[in-house]
Design a protein around this nucleic acid. Structure first.
Lengths: 212, 212
DNA sequence: TGTACATCAGTGAACGCGCGTTCACTGATGTAC
DNA sequence: TGTACATCAGTGAACGCGCGTTCACTGATGTAC
């Protein structure tokens, strides 16, 4: 871990260092910026050393994708916990929906504050499946979808969501916040002022809560 | 217009031919596939002739984007007209919402049947603004947003949407179908079976109608 | 405890790719006289 | 009606870029005896 040790011929933890560099690249420029040569450069290693740890660029990108998805989940968890601690809804809405709202707000917050990561999380190089097993995030607990599901279950328990509407409720909620994120980020809504963004966000979340 | 005429030194309508080729490229491979050299090749012209008609690649891409947006609007118009003619909702839902539902379904249909165009429509090279003036589509009447607005106005007139909820209703509806489109196209929902897709679509549209 | 050797993790040079863009040019067209 | 000339719309060659990937290689490490 000392600088001297890091400069040794054997890196020691090159795989993680490359992923870390890739994550940084993703943050700065989205999925297209995740590039083997630059990641190697940043890891202080020749550009083909990477092939000892990844079959090809796609494998690195997949690893970076997973990290980005984890980051989304992490922010969601944090905001959900905050909302639970506060016991009050953050941006309007009733108390029952506070958890769900925090979930959606966290998603939107992430998309806007870390656009590179957000885009990368969804630039899945054909083959990663987030719906499998543990909801897509390896060892870090639940993924975004799992956290959302938890909130919806809570709504059913609280009697705020009819049980017969529970099925596929994730998709409806997810689509709304995901779509708004994309429209704000890359799409026609990019030009909205902060105030307009707030209004749009509130409107979308209200609609989801009412509609579920 | 005869083959002989087309082979003459002066192309005659190179700008449109390049856009046309670009649209084809977008259809096959999305925005990244819209490439000056290949478009020129397909127009039967040397690769730098394009610079007589476009300042750079971005200008071509912008023109192609606009065409893709028009194509979305065109399909929406068609499906809306069909729904109006039938007088009955297409995939469930009540009669009042038939027009809105047709609008959403058309959007989702387009995204899934023409993924390259769909992606290109939203790959706006920073600067195109769809919210301006005529709703973003030049001379072809209303754009997608304008058509959606029409349906929402009709809902208000029919008493199915409280007037005080009319504002920003576009965003809520749009976000839902856009998000679902993206998730199905590039995202984690890519792996859904056709039956699951149907269910997801119905759930999202139901939620929007209820929530507006 | 020492040493031979297999194995692992790096290096450096090179290839090929396709792109965007620029340069100096030439062929075609239309207009003024 | 003919001709000079400006202008427009193409051509062909070239540059530079950065990438992914492969090759033959070398330095470091650990294990068997």
């Amino acid at each position: 871990m000392t600088p001297a040790a890091k400069r040794s011929y054997h890196h020691g933890n090159l795989r993680e260092a490359l992923v870390e560099a890739g994550v940084q690249l993703a943050r700065e420029g989205g999925p297209d910026a995740v590039v083997l040569r630059e990641a190697s450069r940043r890891a202080g290693v020749s550009h083909n050393a990477a092939y000892r740890h990844f079959a090809d660029r796609d494998e690195l990108l997949r690893a970076v994708c997973a990290k980005c998805m984890e980051a989304i989940a992490k922010l969601m968890e944090l905001r959900i916990a905050e909302a639970a601690a506060a016991g009050k809804p953050a941006h309007g809405g009733d108390a029952v929906h506070a958890g769900l709202r925090a979930t959606g707000l966290a998603y939107l917050e992430f998309a806007q504050s870390e656009p590179g990561w957000f885009r990368t999380a969804f630039a899945v190089p054909a083959g990663l499946d987030y719906l499998d097993d543990d909801e897509g995030v390896g060892d870090a607990g639940l993924g975004p979808l799992g956290l959302l599901a938890l909130q919806l279950d809570a709504l059913v328990d609280a009697g705020a969501l009819p049980r017969e509407r529970r099925e596929h409720a994730e998709l409806a909620a997810w689509s709304g916040v995901h779509g708004l994120s994309m429209l704000l980020l890359d799409g026609p809504l990019r030009a909205l002022t902060p105030a307009e963004r707030e209004a749009a966000i509130a409107r979308v979340l209200d609609t989801i809560e009412r509609g579920l």
